[in-house]
Simulated assay, not measured.
Amino acid sequence: MSDNQQASASGARVLFVSPNRIGDSVIASGIVREINRQWPNARITVAAGGPPAPFFRSAPGVERIIVVNKGKWASHWFRLWAEVVKQPWDVVIDTRGSALGWLVRAGTRRIYNRGWETGVPKVEVVSRLMQAPHSLEPELYIDDRAQAEAAAVIDPQLAGGAGPGPVIALAPIAHQKGKSWPADRWGALVEMLKAEPRFDGWRFMLVGGPGDHPPAAPALAAAGERGIDFVGKGDILASAAAIRRAALFVGNDSGLMHVAAAAGTPTLGLFGPTEWWLYGPRGPRTRTVASNQTRGEFAPIEDLTVEAVFAATLDLHDAFIGAEAGA
């Protein structure tokens, strides 16, 4: 009997070191399903950064989550090592390519190698890490708790004046330099959408983390009574539940963009000087608009005009809302 067969028969103990960022965690989320396929009845321990940790609380086979927040002098790795070193693992999967995977006892090791990043989407690299026979598409596990937390914010705002119309979710926040479209343009975009007949009666829901109110403020102000404020309201899984309730999503190249695509919401990602052809939202219900639409060339995100984003949003609407209405 092989190591995999023995581990499967007894319920393999799997240590999964997930990416630290929200977007990367979404991209790698298909690993959970693949663990369960390769090692049925696996007992999975996930080591995750604080913000993406809620993704895994209802994932199949996950029995423990270790929150790993970065510390000075890489002290978080020592803390994690102390948590897991005493346990012999059947399988260690390390998406961060750290030394940890080699410093614990393990029967099978799958350690990420940055040398695999050769111009293919990261989902494909993650699939190679897992030696999977197919692409490991992102998958979210949105539980009842997240749905209830989303409803507790959205439903009172709808009842309080925003009304029952379709919702477009907007995420004007990206925490990496050069990825944030200027806040005032989000306000201008909302004004243009409010005046567009396709969006008559639509509501504008702003989503983001606890510190993201300043860049969301112009869009919320423009939305007025048709606005829904979901900025800083709940953890990332609650945000995912809120975004899944939306009919469309438009956002900067960010973790929430990847969340929206994985949730199945038609998604438009805004890109500046980053590789939209590699890091764009994943899935058949997605689009990108970039400050330079020529693959291999770049321009500052400030070069992306309101008119271009407005036109791309109309295309997104027509592809997934207009087409469904006419079906």
Rank of each mutant, 00 (worst) to 15 (best):
W186G: 06
T265R: 13
A238W: 11
D3F: 15
F320W: 15
L206I: 04
D253L: 00
D90G: 06
G209S: 09
F310R: 01
T45Y: 06
R64S: 14
P214M: 08
D303L: 00
M257H: 07
D184L: 12
P54W: 02
D144I: 01
F16V: 04
M130S: 08
N292V: 09
G227S: 13
A262P: 15
S239G: 13
H213P: 11
W81I: 03
I173P: 01
S239E: 09
W276M: 10
V91N: 13
L170H: 12
D3W: 15
I142P: 15
T288P: 02
S29A: 10
S75I: 03
V207Y: 13
A240V: 09
I154A: 02
R295K: 13
M1E: 13
K72N: 14
A219I: 02
F320P: 14
F298S: 14
V125I: 12
H134D: 15
A308Y: 02
I27A: 15
V167K: 01
G326W: 05
W277T: 06
G115C: 03
K70Y: 01
G322T: 02
V32F: 05
P52W: 05
S98K: 06
V92E: 14
G160F: 03
P54Y: 01
G71F: 10
F271Y: 07
V306H: 07
Q6I: 06
F230K: 06
V68W: 13
L268C: 09
E196M: 00
D229F: 10
V104Q: 13
H317G: 00
V289Y: 05
R37Y: 07
G234S: 03
F271E: 05
P60Q: 02
A171Y: 08
K194A: 03
W276Y: 15
G234A: 05
D94M: 07
V85R: 15
F230D: 13
L270Y: 10
L136Q: 03
P266A: 08
P281W: 07
D200A: 00
L15V: 00
Y112F: 15
M257Q: 13
P281A: 05
N69W: 03
R114Y: 11
S239I: 03
G264V: 11
A246M: 09
L256D: 14
A9N: 14
G161Q: 01
A150M: 09
A238E: 12
P218W: 02
G50M: 10
P19F: 11
V259K: 08
A238D: 12
E275K: 07
A216L: 11
V84N: 05
L278W: 11
F56G: 06
N4R: 13
R33K: 08
V26E: 05
A9P: 14
G107W: 01
M205L: 12
G165R: 00
A325V: 06
A261I: 07
I154E: 04
